[in-house]
Nucleic acid binder design. Structure first.
Length: 572
RNA sequence: GGGCCUGUAGCUCAAUUGGUUAGAGCAGAGCGCUCAUAACGCUUUGGUUGGGGGUUCAAGUCCCUCCGGGCCUACCA
């Protein structure tokens, strides 16, 4: 048994997330967390909402709410939806927590003490009408290159030319439309990543087992052009963590806050502190997960995220931790994902395009979504959701292969032997063959799960389900029952036990159905099988069970067509 | 412009990192079974691995080139 720290990328607070967000971080993280717990490891699985920054302010303004109240409300909504999808966080925290305020200010102070913070004066665009400095992308104007009149201050979407906000002709605020923009001088703190480049570089080089997607993005930023650049970590905003040097004020930085990408990863640590407090534990209880001088040297830390988050997790956050010169635990493995597209285009929160978490749970149980999304996770490249693929995938895998297996075994037993595990006979030759195959497949499944190869693990689990149907077909207890009932009893005893084993092996993917199966088999034995013959003898002759209701109802063509129409347009 | 990823059966993906005859699922065809959610099992059709060139005893895999798709490029997160 070992100790495994798992974090999922933090969902941003400005609305309900879509399925693309879910499959890229929280869902695979939950799969791995559930698997690790099932294998008997000690797991701390953390996630939180990422609440600071301009988009949160704008979303709150749109909802006509104070930003802190908006964030509290949206946090509760996201927590409810996460629970609905069965995400088994040990704690679902908030980047706006007091713990994160303290830690973020602490890290800034340590980095300053160690010479990794510089102060830089910049000229930024200020909008008197909005009463705020405007980020580049919130300034619109006419592109000097192509004449497009809705070019953004960072880039023209029409001709893709990269711009400086001062390049724009007739610039205006994208928030209010105000045109009385001025350029003002403002001072900001920069994290001196350039001074930590060699540390980061050799650390990345030591991670030969990481996915190419992860290391290639990191190396690109490390080596491209002039190498790793310093990064601004403060902003002229109201909503955020006030800039402080530990407990002390920071002269010249009054009224400024830390940039979200500085405080958000620190919330991974602060979230452990929130967890400890919520559990009535002490500082040492979470330090043993995060401080290598307090027990975390034997922790394996795994992060899950979409590819857009990789630079911050491979460069900025490690720079923060290393630059503190404290013994904080660094990540051991980063699992990154590509994007899930929706029916020929991207999921989009801002355009309301695709399927959102609340809608998804309204039309189908979480297991349907979990299974399809995980078994089609965008690991090697972007993947695509279509209703037709979703329908056939779910119907074949869950209803036909797994659900129908459970149904045929339990109903056959009930009609021939009654609702208890039948006695008599010895394991048959067909049974021996099944046990042999399952031992092989279990080893493959475990290998893929350990390596966090999500799609391959799902394919192997499906093959394990198929093996049950093959066994029934060859053993044909409905035939042997007529001439050799003891043989039929032995085969059905094995098949009933197989249902329990399926529940245990499948639980990380489909926890709801797994719980239903265990309940139907009247057992709470969730022991991970090490030897299949032993695992398939847990339910002994005479053990009662019940025939469960249809495990997975099929998605009909009418359902699919209705959803296709309903989710075709944006939802505003 | 620069960089990274990607292109394999009608569709979605594998292929132990250069090693026998490129494999699965879905879809299609045929057969079998009748316990079961019209479910299950078996067999089977289907490939010049995007095009071209090169290295090698051997290339889906390495190199060059062309074509297509995606992502990133530092103030959206």
């Amino acid at each position: 048994m070992s100790r495994i720290l798992i974090t999922s990328a933090l969902p941003y607070i400005n609305g309900i997330k879509h399925l693309g967000n879910l499959v890229g971080s929280q869902l695979p993280a939950d799969l791995y967390a559930r698997y690790c717990r099932a294998r008997g490891h000690e797991v701390l699985f953390l996630c939180a909402t990422d609440e600071h920054g301009t988009p949160a302010e704008l979303a709150a303004a749109k909802a006509d709410m104070p930003v802190d109240a908006y964030c509290s409300q949206m946090h509760r909504t996201q927590a409810r939806l996460a629970a609905g999808f069965g995400l088994s966080f040990d704690h679902f925290g908030r980047s706006s927590s007091p713990q994160n305020h303290r830690l973020t200010q602490y890290f800034a102070g340590r980095l300053a003490e160690n010479g990794y913070i510089s102060e830089v004066s910049e000229k930024m665009v200020y909008s008197p009408a909005d009463g705020r400095f405007l980020p580049d992308r919130y300034i619109e104007g006419t592109c000097p290159n192509c004449g497009y009149d809705r070019a953004r201050g960072d880039q023209c979407e029409n001709c893709t030319k990269q711009l400086d906000p001062t390049d724009l002709l007739e610039p205006r605020s994208a928030i209010s439309g105000a045109t009385d923009l001025e350029v003002r001088e403002t001072k900001h703190l920069f994290l001196r990543q350039s001074a930590l480049k060699d540390d980061i570089d050799s650390w990345i080089d030591s991670k030969a087992d990481w996915p190419v997607l992860t290391t290639s993005i990191a190396k690109k930023w490390l080596h491209d052009g002039d190498g790793l650049q310093d990064r601004g970590i403060t902003r002229d905003l109201d909503w955020g963590i006030p800039v402080k040097k530990g407990d002390e004020s920071w002269p010249g930085m009054e009224g400024k806050v830390f940039y979200v990408w500085f405080d958000a990863p620190i919330e991974y640590i602060a979230c452990a502190a929130e967890w400890a407090e919520a559990q009535g534990k002490d500082e040492e209880d979470w330090w043993r997960w995060w401080r290598t001088d307090a027990g975390a040297e034997d922790v394996r830390y795994v992060q899950f995220m979409g590819k857009d988050n990789v630079p911050f997790h491979t460069l900025t956050f490690p720079s923060t931790l290393i630059g503190s010169r404290d013994p904080w635990k660094l990540v051991d493995y980063i699992k990154s994902f590509n994007y899930l597209n929706y029916d020929g285009g991207q999921f989009s929160t801002s355009q309301g395009r695709g399927i959102f978490q609340d809608d998804a749970l309204e039309i189908l149980p979480a297991d349907y979504w979990r299974w399809w999304l995980l078994s089609n996770a965008p690991e090697s490249s972007d993947s695509e959701f279509t209703w037709e693929k979703f329908q056939t995938g779910v119907n074949k895998d869950l209803a036909d292969v797994l659900g129908n297996f459970v149904s045929r075994v339990t109903k056959f037993c009930r009609s021939k032997f009654g609702e208890e595990v039948p006695e008599g006979g010895e394991i048959t030759e067909d049974g021996r063959r099944l046990i042999g195959e399952l031992n092989t497949r279990l080893a493959t499944y475990v290998g893929h799960m350990d390596a966090i190869e999500v799609r391959k693990a799902a394919a192997e689990l499906r093959a394990i389900w198929v093996a049950g149907n093959e066994f029934l077909q060859t053993a044909a207890p409905w035939t042997s029952f007529k001439t050799d009932p003891e043989r039929a009893a032995a085969d059905i005893r094995l098949a009933l036990n197989l249902i329990r084993v399926y529940a245990v092996l499948s639980a990380p993917f489909i926890p709801g159905a797994a719980a239903t199966l265990l309940e139907a088999m009247c057992t709470d034995d969730t022991g991970w099988p090490s030897d299949m013959e032993a695992a398939l003898a847990v339910l002994e002759a005479g053990h009662g069970f019940s025939v469960p209701d249809t495990l997975f109802a099929k998605i009909g063509d009418e359902d699919r067509e209705g959803w296709e129409v309903r989710f075709a347009g944006g939802r505003g």
